[in-house]
Design a binder for these strands. Structure first.
Lengths: 148, 148
DNA sequence: CCTAATCTCTTCTTCGAAGAAGAGAAATCT
DNA sequence: AGATTTCTCTTCTTCGAAGAAGAGATTAGG
């Protein structure tokens, strides 16, 4: 990060730490393992996919992936839908309203909502522009790490 | 999140997912366990603390915490410093430059740096104002989850 | 001073999740 | 139609990390 501010890097690092801290605390509060949350994020970000594809993305072999999906399905975060075109296949799709996770995330969502509510439309434009770009940047970087 | 945009919530959610995705991929690339990264984040965010305090913050008992610190120290992310005032105590402090993690995070940092470099000073003001406030919001929310 | 409290670390056991290998079902290709 | 490939799922084993209990060392209090 260039010299926009002397402490820009530090602020950003602490920001990331706080996000991760909260995410981990949320997972813990839901009795959700780290890999489970990771997979759930993949599904929410990328959309429905087959177990095989999820295996590839998580880096797990198919065995653990089956049981990972079992856990997520049992907890009500995803569901298995048979593929109409290919009856060997199953599609794993994220469920719209994951009850527990939503409840746990509510306080943070409230706080962030309050913060965002204090900005002008022009400022929000900037923020959401950043969110959109950063999403792509992190997704690409993660992809890059995965393929190394 | 109120009706600032119809897809605001979705954009923000995907943004968070991407951040977490990348973080998990980074941890994986460093052979760093989820709890290890979690603890490291606590230390980087809050600063040096005793193993007992780290135990409380991670929610672990003291046994696993000792070995968690062992792993982090061995990997070169933290170090133990004896407390001069109380010789029973040890202070665990994060090391300034964690080699592996830095290397793994470099591509993302580059991309984010490029994105931020494209904004005007006024826009950066808005972004860093958000980062600062959001850090506090997530930290408080995580604290709240921990104490439930 | 001597007891109680505090702090870290060690040991043992337990548990969850990952890997490996293969079975079973269905699609594809010759 | 038969053989091969492609999926998912099952079983068994292995491994890392968490919990419980207690030892050892140091400080604080009566």
């Amino acid at each position: 990060m260039p010299s926009m501010r002397p402490d820009a890097s530090r602020i950003y690092r602490q920001y990331l730490s706080a996000v991760l801290l909260h995410s981990h605390a949320s997972a813990r509060a839901c009795d959700l393992g780290a890999t489970d949350l990771y997979a759930l994020n993949i599904l929410q970000l990328t959309g429905a996919m087959t177990p095989g594809e999820l295996s590839a993305r998580t880096g797990l072999t198919t065995g653990p992936t089956t049981r990972l999906i079992d856990r997520l399905e049992h907890a009500g975060y995803v569901r298995r839908v048979p593929d109409p075109g290919d009856r060997r296949k199953v599609t794993v799709e994220p469920v719209s309203e994951p009850a527990d996770l939503d409840r746990v995330m509510a306080p943070a969502r409230q706080r962030i909502g309050d913060i965002l509510g204090g900005y002008t439309p022009e400022q929000l434009e900037v923020l959401f522009d950043y969110f959109t770009r950063a999403t792509e940047a992190y997704r690409e970087s993660a992809e890059q790490l995965r393929s190394e």
